[in-house]
Design a protein around this nucleic acid. Structure first.
Lengths: 108, 108
DNA sequence: AATAATACTTCGTGATATGATGTATTACAC
DNA sequence: GTGTAATACATCATATCACGAAGTATTATT
């Protein structure tokens, strides 16, 4: 999939991945995989960015003798997801513009 | 609208704006305006990029004592628009992922 | 013992949207 | 007839960001 199209989608995907329950890096990647590929370097960059923006909080927890960072979505993060749904209406109108006049049985 | 979401949309929007008939910079901006805002610097950058990629051709023509650059979509450009429609299926599946479990009457 | 999987980090790079600024002509308001 | 807006295109510097590469460390599997 086109890199540029992914931008703007990745952030909300990560937030969506931790929406229903706290999760950690490796799991987020696996959960997103069926829908969108994300590299480790990209994910951890995004997680840090989202943390700085107050969209999520981090908690370090031991798991099987190894440290894991669990990410928890905040109210701001949930708000971001809501805003995204609003923006999506705009996106769909743009899609309409791009595919305008593309129906098979188009009239002149 | 979110800058990141615009990426990946702008290129195809510009191609769509010259799809049915040749157009020029200023008109493209005005045609796109109801759907998506684009600054002049961005548009001319994109037009140059698309020309280099063989998605469109340029023809300079005089109009009212002033030079105008008319942009014409190529087969490759039309192909790009077709590819975009395929990619859109992926985008919609991502949207599903993001809004998963967001219905009002959600079951546990 | 070796390899794969899990888990996170840092760095450099390339793509790119945009504001600022500049040039030049035409149309219009006063 | 002079100033301002609109038309039309160009260039530059900047900031954001996805990603590959490379690294560190532990656990699970073969």
């Amino acid at each position: 999939m086109d890199i540029q199209l992914k931008r703007g989608l990745l952030d909300v995907c990560v937030l969506a991945a931790i929406k229903s329950e706290d999760s950690y890096g490796y799991k987020i990647i696996k959960d997103m995989k069926p829908y969108i590929e994300i590299s480790e370097s990209t994910l951890y960059t995004i997680l840090k960015r989202l943390e700085l923006a107050g969209m999520l909080t981090v908690r370090t927890s031991e798991h099987g003798g190894r440290l894991r960072k669990y990410y928890h979505i905040t109210k701001a993060g949930l708000g971001r997801l809501e805003d995204f749904k609003d923006e999506w209406r705009e996106v769909m109108s743009i899609y309409q513009f791009v595919t305008l006049g593309d129906t098979k049985n188009e009239k002149k």
